[in-house]
Design a protein around this nucleic acid. Structure first.
Lengths: 129, 129
DNA sequence: ATTTAAATTGTTATAATATAACACTCTGTA
DNA sequence: TACAGAGTGTTATATTATAACAATTTAAAT
């Protein structure tokens, strides 16, 4: 795989270091000291990083996390668990689930090339609170 | 179940008549002649309608569709197919899928109360184009 | 080395999506 | 009939995302 460009690398490093999903304008604020000044610079890098599978967008949160699955090249089969109390997000890496969903066919005869699944609930820590 | 309020009914009727997902500001434009003038009036009705399961939000599109599943009271287990060419969205009502996902447990020990799944691809019509 | 096309960057402005805050009104019920 | 909860109306503003255009860098093929 080709290397990331300067902006892409800066933004990927930031997201990768974070242990929680980051929103675009939080990213912007953090990288302003590195010379990235405008939203569009952030969104362009995010678009590319999503496209090549280095990060994923958590659609229900409008936020981005680094891919936890080291072998992931393309974001075409993603699943996440989201704690509705502490907002912790974890990428689910479960071969039974991914097999089931990748092979799923509905009666409409649609050809699926991609899916995104988000589970919501309470994480272990938050259940006991 | 209790009846919808005036604004909720107006907005639900509009979405229900539409055969495609509607965006909040498209809804606003359509209901202005009925006296609903401000975005917040729309968003409040949408929030309530989502909460009681009459409509669903398509997260990847920031758009709303009426629930196709007449028995659905609460939006806690939703799945959709989305055509990336014509943007047609269909609610998937498949008991095998919903059973599989409702029973899914990951190793993080999280207790899930809800999920949302979006499949992307090409619908029958668009495949042949 | 030089050309060339594609990707990336920088910049300003603006579009699209969504919520805060506050006051008032309606509705069901105890 | 008063009271609590849900709903409404309104203005302002916050948040998320893209349009348009010009310049620069990069990678690959001559």
């Amino acid at each position: 795989m080709q290397n990331l460009s300067k902006n892409q690398q800066i933004i990927f490093d930031l997201i990768d270091k974070s242990n929680e999903p980051m929103k675009a304008y939080a990213i912007l604020f953090n990288v302003q000291k590195k010379g990235i000044k405008a939203p569009l610079q952030v969104y362009r890098a995010l678009d590319k990083l999503v496209e090549i599978g280095k990060i994923h967008k958590i659609e229900s949160r409008n936020a981005f996390i680094a891919c936890q699955n080291s072998s992931c090249q393309v974001s075409k089969a993603t699943a996440f668990s989201i704690c509705e109390s502490c907002e912790k997000v974890t990428e689910i890496n479960n071969s039974s689930l991914s097999k089931y969903l990748s092979n799923f066919k509905d009666r409409a005869g649609m050809k699926y090339s991609k899916y995104n699944l988000e589970f919501f609930g309470l994480c272990k820590k938050c259940i006991t609170k």
